[in-house]
Design a binder for these strands. Structure first.
Lengths: 349, 349
DNA sequence: TTGTACGCGTTATCAT
DNA sequence: ATGATAACGCGTACAA
């Protein structure tokens, strides 16, 4: 009947068993005292003792001493009750957590229920109180948001939609290869009337998707019907639904739709289902994100952003501790490519 | 240019500013030394000083001293590359994390990439090394898995599919209200040939869903066609797809399908789409889980398990520290009800 | 109310 | 060349 937690071995236990001091245990296990500082025999005794006791240093004690919690804050771009409504920031968090573990780090996701919390400094306070070692921001909206953390002296990494006005490392995505492949795929199937549903506003990242779309068509000599470009406010299912309804109501109805986000595509799917438009027979549909596109009915061709890669790169940057000192030079953003995967949702025009 | 992290206030700083000892700062801020133990003026001085300095106790130092990390391990039933394939254990983790924060606790999700890791004790080691204060297990598969943690002296809470052979607190779901309402809804629409797609095997929780389904029909005097009950191995999309194809191939094709899981329903949706069977015109579909059912095309009527409530209850149990001592009596599981929400996926038979 | 030991590992200083 | 001693990080708990 294990009432109290079975006491776990401490460095003291190991030291006693090996007949050495605690300092030596620490040195050996961390490789701090390299080969020449400690005799091979002693070294082995320590290792054996540690193994025998199943010793693992107390992470809190270590963190306290090293002034490094090994926890990094992650601020997703949006949070809602149901994560399925915001797949990208959400899945990004999952991948960050996984990558962090690989490096002995941990992610603390700071969810702002209200957008107000973003500005109020509530989140800064939250993460600061927990002594995070740094912060990963997904598409921060305001300069202040980023600077709050920098002012506090924390390393910051921006993902996906970095504010270039703030000099931090950033990891971004190149929409071109994926979108180009997607459009060329549709063109090859004979489509000429291809619609675009995406986000308006002036953020370069969102505009870039439209630009890639445009460029691919222009390159093929296709003239884009202005009515076929539908810009909405946000990546929400309802927006995709309404935009698609609008497209279906046009006299010049498109034969294919590029939806710039999985949930935009989901909304499109709902509208098409209601209107009894069959995919791919009556209309072809391609999405961006490729998070759950493959699981829909029908499975959608989609352009994937390498969220796993983004996460790994971000953690990698944080894991090799911030540059010793002078290297404050505005770092060049790391750009990762997108990739298109065709599925059953496209067919001949 | 904030090179080094702006030093954060310590209890020492507060003590100095308030002209008292660190012990008193701790006592006042934790309410340990309640009103009668410290003079109101001093008390106020401490509070003022803490507020002025924006003091928040270092969580690592506190945890180290109190021998309590405030971190709890969560072992989801399944983990894959894409969390959207296993919505329940996944969303449970999200809700656990959220509820934990509310109580000043944290969740560490231990994902076993391989099922082998579950038995090997690798996960126990992982969590033990991180000094978790307890463990939340979602539908553990083997008794050993649970006992490993109990042997180590950690409090364990089992969710959804507890192993009753191990005496731990548990939180379970009552499928009856939701499934009964769903079937009665279909009956009221005139359906008599209602199919069931669910999990076989001998786990009582999975069987219970079928039993509730059966009972509701029997109560209405409906005879169930044995061909209409399809049992599959796991809650996977592909299984729902194949089972539905089988159902569509029957000479006595059902007019409605109850899919015992959102991704079973998703598979059904794919099969129905391929076969060009319209919902709800040609066939009615109801799912279990209600995680993303509302977002599909068409939105599915679904039975919801209160994952948020489950999470809150679990955290609640852990937050009020384990029973002082003797109260080892096998605790009664906490049972929470399901709820049915009709949507556009059902219609007259 | 205060002093002091403590939790546990790391790091800088000291001793052979 | 090898290893030990002691201080430290920060807050809490108990005795004084």
């Amino acid at each position: 009947m294990p009432k109290a937690r079975s006491r776990v071995a401490t460095s003291h236990d190991v030291a006693r068993l090996a007949g050495v001091s605690r300092a030596l245990v620490s040195g050996v296990l961390n490789g701090t005292m390299s080969t020449m500082r400690v005799s091979p025999e002693t070294r082995q005794r320590v290792l054996d003792a540690a193994a025998e006791l199943g010793y693992s240093p107390h992470p809190l004690a270590r963190a306290l001493r090293q002034q490094r919690s090994n926890v990094y804050g992650y601020l997703p771009r949006a949070t809602r009750r149901n994560p399925y409504e915001h797949p990208v920031p959400f899945l990004l968090g999952v991948h960050l957590a996984k990558a962090a573990i690989q490096h002995g780090l941990h992610i603390l996701e700071a969810s702002a229920e209200t957008t107000a919390a973003h500005e109020s400094g509530e989140l800064v306070r939250f993460l600061r109180d927990r002594r995070v070692d740094g912060v990963i921001l997904d598409s921060p909206r305001t300069t202040e948001e980023v600077e709050q953390f920098l002012d506090y002296g924390l390393p910051v990494i921006q993902l996906i939609r970095p504010l270039t006005s703030v000099p931090t490392p950033a990891i971004i995505v190149d929409p071109k290869p994926g979108i180009t492949a997607a459009i060329e795929h549709l063109l090859a199937l004979g489509h000429r009337a291809i619609a675009f549903i995406g986000i308006g506003g002036d953020h370069p990242v969102d505009r870039a998707r439209l630009n890639c779309f445009r460029a691919a068509l222009v390159r093929a000599g296709v003239v884009i019907d202005p009515e076929h470009v539908r810009l909405v406010d946000d990546y929400e299912i309802g927006n995709g639904l309404r935009a698609t309804e609008d497209l279906l109501a046009l006299s010049s109805r498109p034969t294919a739709i590029f939806a710039s986000g999985d949930n935009i595509a989901l909304g499109a799917l709902q509208a098409l289902y209601r209107a009894n438009v069959r995919i791919p027979d009556d209309l072809s549909l391609v999405s961006y994100d490729d998070i759950y596109a493959a699981h829909l009915a029908p499975p959608l061709a989609s352009v994937r952003q390498p969220l796993d890669e983004i996460a790994e790169q971000a953690i990698g940057l944080l894991a090799r501790r911030p540059s010793p000192d002078g290297e404050e030079a505005a770092p060049e953003p790391i750009m990762l490519p997108t990739k298109f995967t065709p599925r059953g949702s496209t067919g001949p025009a």
